[in-house]
Write a protein that binds this DNA or RNA. Structure first.
Length: 122
DNA sequence: CTTCTTACA
DNA sequence: TGTAAGCA
């Protein structure tokens, strides 16, 4: 477990979390301890990648088994995911628009009173 | 001593 | 997410 955490750069807590979400299924020793394989390491890398792409763990759980061995492309066996992923893309677009709006609002406030609120320590 | 699970904040 | 308890 320690080894996997170090090698993947992912906290042990997160590894357990991924497993609880059904994203990872490491072998168990007779002791009950987790035994991570090289394949698991690769899976963790994919999970992190997908997570950083802004996908939820539930979506990742569906996408993960549909990824090719060489990565970065969807397996031809599950085209049903494309629709959902397009939906995710639309959600991202909406979030980007919302953030742009928020930023514009902040810009308005900051342009109106940029210096007055500055801390003395700064 | 390390890991595992569960649970609470 | 951090952490503590209790077990193997």
């Amino acid at each position: 477990m320690k080894e996997m955490a170090q090698r993947s750069g992912v906290h042990e807590r997160s590894l357990r979390y991924y497993e609880k979400q059904g994203l990872l299924a490491p072998q168990r020793l007779s002791s009950g301890y987790r035994e991570y394989s090289e394949a698991d390491l690769e899976t963790v890398r994919r999970i992190r990648c997908l997570l950083m792409a802004g996908l939820s763990t539930v979506v990742i759980a569906q996408v993960l088994p549909c990824l090719r061995d060489d990565d970065s492309r969807l397996a031809p066996t599950c085209p049903d995911l494309v629709g959902q992923l397009r939906g995710e893309r639309e959600r991202m677009t909406r979030e980007i628009k919302a953030l742009n709006t928020s930023r514009a609002l902040l810009d308005t406030v900051l342009d109106a009173a940029p210096r007055e609120f500055a801390c003395q320590a700064d």
